[in-house]
Design a protein around this nucleic acid. Sequence first.
DNA 1: GTCTATACACTGATAGAC
DNA 2: GTCTATCAGTGTATAGAC
Lengths: 204, 204
Amino acid sequence: MKPEAQGKDVKLKILNAAKKLFAKKGFEGTTVRQICDEAGVALALVSYHFGGKENVFYALFETFAPAFLAAEYDLEDPAQDLQAFVREFALFRLAEPELINILQQEVMMESPRLEKLQSIIYVLWRQLRLILEAGKAKGQFEFDSTRHTVHFIVGTLVFSRSSPFLDPVFQDENESNQPTAAEAEKMVVELTTKFILNGIKSKI
Amino acid sequence: MKPEAQGKDVKLKILNAAKKLFAKKGFEGTTVRQICDEAGVALALVSYHFGGKENVFYALFETFAPAFLAAEYDLEDPAQDLQAFVREFALFRLAEPELINILQQEVMMESPRLEKLQSIIYVLWRQLRLILEAGKAKGQFEFDSTRHTVHFIVGTLVFSRSSPFLDPVFQDENESNQPTAAEAEKMVVELTTKFILNGIKSKI
DNA sequence: GTCTATACACTGATAGAC
DNA sequence: GTCTATCAGTGTATAGAC
């Protein structure tokens, strides 16, 4: 391994370890020692490469959510925009469940760290709000309060804890034969879209 | 104040402080010192009255969610049962937002503390699942996957962070004139019910 | 029951060898 | 760049005065 590549490698190992641990134990519940143990590197390397635990947190989002939902919507067909929005969000959640998990925890406790993520979150929030209002104006959606509806949709999109003890082992309901990973992905996106669009009485 | 009542008073002050802080900073992010400062009592009293920080956590739910959603549903009219379920949940969230907040954080990180709350959570989860399946069997609801639909509904019910920076100050949309607290409550319940019931195409 | 003072493990961060 | 050893600070819990 080339010397100059080692730094990158260690940084990535730390980021992956931190992602896993932050999602599982929260930011405060995770110690730098745990991160380094999980990553298999020495304790000092978090400070060396990132300059502290908090910067690992920010690097997590810069690395794994670089242009997360940077898509713009022209609001010409809000129903279609909403579908695209939901789809993109659901796919990101499938790709990076830990990141969504961390984000949700931080949003819940209004952590001070959110300030530096405000751009990401606020943009999303605003996009959704604009789509909803445009769709309502065009008669495509049916809801009373934009503020609450944004909450409902975000809640639907964000919450997906497949804890073993909440979903006890039981026969696959409809999906009797094991779907492939790709099929399962597609299904989740479809189901989520359907629930949300139904929720605001939009055609699918 | 009667001597024997002082203990109760201090315990309640600690519980209220802990509820506020756990919701805001998470369990691990909250220190016993912070709890006691917020409660205005000496550091030692958490250990004295509860036997440690973790027991304060459990006492929180025993105290403020004594028979939370103990309601039974006969599943004769699942659509009505679901409405009652959503209503009861939404009202509890209005009454004890911090508790829902804490619960959500813990569920997200699958904290070890959840084990002792399993009965509460699992019962809820199961009730909702049973209502959904009964309603589907009766043709009242329309959805493909019970598992995912439970997730969507719980997400909708649980997520409601009214952070000032997510909902920037802007003119009350529909609700132009200030509603009373009771009216606002009623509205939230109605909106939530509507979104969820629409989501599974149930009549309202 | 409530307080202050303290014990002692563990935290994040750094210094210095390699 | 990476490691081990160590620091100062803070965590929870307890001992003992009142």
